[in-house]
Design a protein around this nucleic acid. Structure first.
Length: 827
DNA sequence: CATGGGTAGTGA
DNA sequence: TCACTACC
């Protein structure tokens, strides 16, 4: 893959928090606004300013009061406070909403922050290049676009047009790709606005650093292209510190040591010289970036690698005693618990490590920070209490200075900062509790699912998956569905040689999903269902003669333990397998597979030679010659452009299918959430006095994938009754279950209250030695009681499950959705 | 007391 | 593993 001829984009939301506030409260639109945090002291600290307010001189970091002075009519919505600290959930959710839209355009997306994402659109550009003549690109196809080194886009357009014919200059050849990129980015930004209402800016260049750099050059709601031949023009005046990674101490050091200020001055130094002055790595990096070279990949990463929260306790607010420390650790732990719950639902993963960080004030007045990590055991319940207990343990054991004096429980040094974060996520590999998913799927297949799906408006991915293979076998299906290869052969995502290789490869190693689909259709009429172990599993286990192991299961096989070969499992495994860096993929493929792979190429070659003359054969030869160590066994995935070993391509296509399945899951989840939100808003307008009830409903939103939530999905013609507890319409024969749910929820809340009595600073009835002991022990009565409640939930859900899976009203998609959710929550 | 809370990454 | 840097 040519790192130097990519088309890389940075999408950055304009004053994102302000936009979120404007969307939530449309009355604010058009007014100068700034989002503040903690308003009591001097009007709070400003963390985002919209462009109306910027025009009045309001900036980030100002206090709210100061902003009011500069701009008396400014509106200052504030970040919500939860558990005594700022809570940015709504902005985080909004960021996700945007990223999901971006993801539709390329899988090669890296979320860089809450409001920024890098996209590698090299492949979409290449594809567009085939259908779009660069000479026909006009200004209206690239609105709000700037090109560095040109007064306006038209000049750039003209320049590219005039050079296309000759294509003498290599850089101009890339410029036309950037132009196509700009067309696509215009579409992306328009879609983001259409689907979310948010505006963003973009930088379009051939690497991440430059895309990021130019993104900020025209804002808001603009996009900026940086053609390679304009880099030096830009660098001539560009302060070195503006470049990512050079904004801090390192950038200062570079400027000091080399006595330079702007980027172009960096070019005079030899690589060796830079390496001696800094170190090898930094020296080379500086040498490259001075020439506009940055080889860093855009990683395909949507989810954060860690989830954490922290708080400062400045000056007098510093924590001085154990009570205070305890209280805040508890609050932080509870927030992590809440966020992990959402994360588990959306991503089906579990953190394996937690880190507590803190800083204390030294006797000399300076702050020193420390952090301690803890790797979870399998017995650890991942809840706020565990986080808090472990955090406290770690802090106390890490520092004698922290040990409270026994008489007054005062800490020896004041704590100025506390933070807990969890990370090192691993995918949840279901075993026992997922086994029923198989029966469930079987039941779904044995019914006439299609009848039901046809009556529905939206055709879901799962529905398509089930319907499609009727006309094509697994291989074709996989090819068409996941590699966007059209039947007519007119529009092809990949080049012909790649197609041949992948098709041949598919014959040798069938995918889990392909097998699943085939067998589903063969067996569905008899009401049985086959589950076949995936290639991935097989690779891990001992080799067997047959390619796959077939397990039969019908309605009578409820007790069989189908350890782990479930759809959900496959989705997770497929995703886990490819979510990391490309190197991991290389590691997975072993020598044996590589050998098979080469064999494949020879097979293909001979078959092609026989059939179609030598053109294809030459192409394959070329691939081999180009890079004997890489290209033979690797192929660029048309979906995400990662280099995938040929023998892994099936698993990799499964990965993309899995992503899509999971995305559909999420969409259904979100739709439901939206529905509940809408009724909530409606009700708030009708009835403002029922705050308490709202609170209950909010909780319900968080717990959306519950029986109740699912029950709400049923058709409107079914007889329903209003639930007295939450006011939702419930299908009559589900009402009992629904009320049980409320009871269970109440109980659970009560228990939670009991287990965490320290809710505020003013709560005085804490601090006995007895209490302390209880806090520090994870194996207390409360925990056991909580467990039993979970069991209660389980039983009820299973009840719902049983009644639902025999119901012909639900599409297979719905049923599968439910099951996946069921598995995630009640793991 | 006074830009705070939240991420990712690196080197020893 | 932890201290520290860098960025939004």
């Amino acid at each position: 893959m040519d790192q130097e001829n990519r088309v890389v984009v940075l999408i950055d939301m304009d004053c994102f928090y302000c936009q979120v506030e404007e969307k939530l409260n449309p009355e604010l639109k058009g007014m100068p606004i700034a989002v503040v945090q903690y308003n009591p002291w001097k009007g709070g600290g400003i963390i985002a300013v919209n462009y109306e307010a910027r025009a009045m001189g309001v900036t980030r970091g100002m206090r709210g009061d100061e902003a009011k002075e500069k701009c008396p009519e400014i509106q200052l919505p504030s970040v919500p406070c939860q558990r005594g600290k700022a809570d940015i959930t709504k902005y985080r959710e909004a960021g996700k909403e945007v990223a999901r839209v971006l993801q539709k355009f390329t899988a090669l997306l890296e979320r860089a922050s809450i409001d920024e994402a890098y996209l590698d659109i090299t492949l979409p550009v290449e594809e567009r290049l085939r259908s779009l003549d660069v000479n026909t690109i006009s200004t209206d196809m690239v609105p709000n676009t700037f090109a560095l080194g040109y007064n306006c886009v038209d000049e750039f357009l003209a320049d590219v047009h005039s050079c296309v014919a000759e294509s003498i200059d290599f850089e101009y050849d890339h410029a036309k790709r950037l132009l196509i990129g700009a067309v696509i980015v215009s579409e992306i930004r328009a879609t983001v606005y259409e689907e979310t209402g948010y505006r963003c800016s973009a930088g379009i260049a051939h690497n991440k650093i430059l895309a990021k750099l130019v993104c900020g050059m025209n804002k808001p709601n603009k996009q900026t292209i940086l053609p390679k031949h304009s880099i030096n023009i830009l660098y001539k005046t560009l302060p070195l510190k503006k470049v990512k990674h050079l904004g801090g101490k390192f950038g200062d050091a570079v400027c000091d040591i080399l006595k330079i200020k702007v980027m172009s001055e960096l070019q005079q130094f030899a690589e060796k010289e830079l390496q001696t002055r800094f170190d090898d790595k930094n020296g080379s990096w500086l040498y490259n970036i001075a020439r506009g070279i940055d080889l860093e990949h855009v990683q395909a990463r949507f989810n954060p690698k860690s989830i954490g929260c922290c708080k400062q306790f400045r000056g007098k607010a510093a924590l001085l005693d154990l009570e205070n420390l305890t209280k805040w650790l508890k609050d932080l732990g509870d927030e992590i618990e809440d966020r992990l719950e959402t994360d588990a639902l959306e991503n089906n993963r579990t953190p394996k490590q937690m880190v507590v960080s803190y800083s204390v004030q030294m006797p000399d007045g300076r702050d020193t920070s420390s952090s301690r990590s803890y790797n979870f055991n399998t017995e650890d319940e991942l809840c706020g209490e565990t986080f808090y207990n472990k955090a406290l343990e770690l802090i106390i054991e890490s520092s004698e200075g922290m040990k409270p004096k026994h008489c007054n429980r005062k800490l020896k040094a004041p704590i100025k900062f506390l933070g807990i974060s969890v990370g090192k996520f691993e995918d949840n590999t279901e075993s026992k509790k997922t086994k029923k998913i198989v029966d469930y799927f079987a039941a779904g297949c044995s019914k006439d699912v299609n009848k039901n799906t046809k009556s529905e408006n939206k055709e879901t991915l799962v529905d398509k998956v089930v319907e499609k293979p009727k006309s094509s076998d697994g291989k074709d299906f996989i090819m068409k569905k996941f590699f966007q290869v059209k039947d007519d052969g007119v529009e092809k995502t990949m080049d012909v040689a790649s197609n041949v290789i992948i098709e041949a490869s598919l014959d040798k190693q069938e995918s889990f999903f392909a097998k699943m689909l085939k067998n589903t259709h063969k067996e569905s009429e008899q009401g049985t269902y086959n589950v076949i172990e995936s290639q991935i599993q097989k690779d891990n286990a001992k080799p067997r003669t047959p390619n796959c192991e077939v397990m039969k299961c019908g309605d009578d096989s409820n007790d069989t333990d189908y350890s782990g070969s479930t759809i959900n499992n496959e989705i997770n495994k497929s995703i886990a397998l490819f979510e990391d860096e490309p190197q991991d993929i290389a590691r997975i493929s072993n020598i044996r597979q590589l050998l098979n792979c080469k064999q494949d190429i020879t097979d293909i070659k001979s078959s092609v030679d026989g059939n179609e003359g030598s053109n294809l054969s030459n192409q394959i030869d070329n691939i081999q010659e180009e890079n004997i160590h890489d290209k033979i066994e690797n192929i660029d995935c048309p979906e995400c452009r990662k280099s995938i070993p040929l023998n892994m391509i099936v698993q990799h296509s499964d990965y993309h299918l899995a992503l899509k399945l999971r995305e559909e899951e999420r969409q259904i989840f979100r739709d439901e959430k939206d529905k509940i939100n809408k009724t909530l808003i409606e009700r708030r307008q009708n009835d403002r006095s029922h705050k308490q009830r709202e609170k209950g409903d909010r909780q319900k939103i968080n717990m959306a994938p519950s029986i109740e939530k699912f029950v709400m999905k049923v058709d409107k013609c079914v007889p329903t009754e209003m639930c007295v507890q939450c006011g939702t319409r419930i299908v009559l024969d589900k009402l009992t279950q629904h009320l049980d749910f409320h009871e269970a929820q109440k109980l659970r809340r009560e228990l939670k209250q009991k287990s965490s009595p320290i809710k505020t600073n003013t709560n005085r009835n804490v601090g006995s030695v007895k209490r302390k002991k209880k806090m520090l022990s994870p194996t207390n009565k409360t925990k056991l009681q909580c467990k039993s409640i979970d069991t209660f939930f389980m039983v009820r859900t299973t009840g719902a499950f049983l009644s639902l899976h025999t119901s012909p009203r639900h599409s297979l998609s719905d049923q599968l959705s439910f099951l996946l959710r069921y598995v995630v929550i009640y793991r």
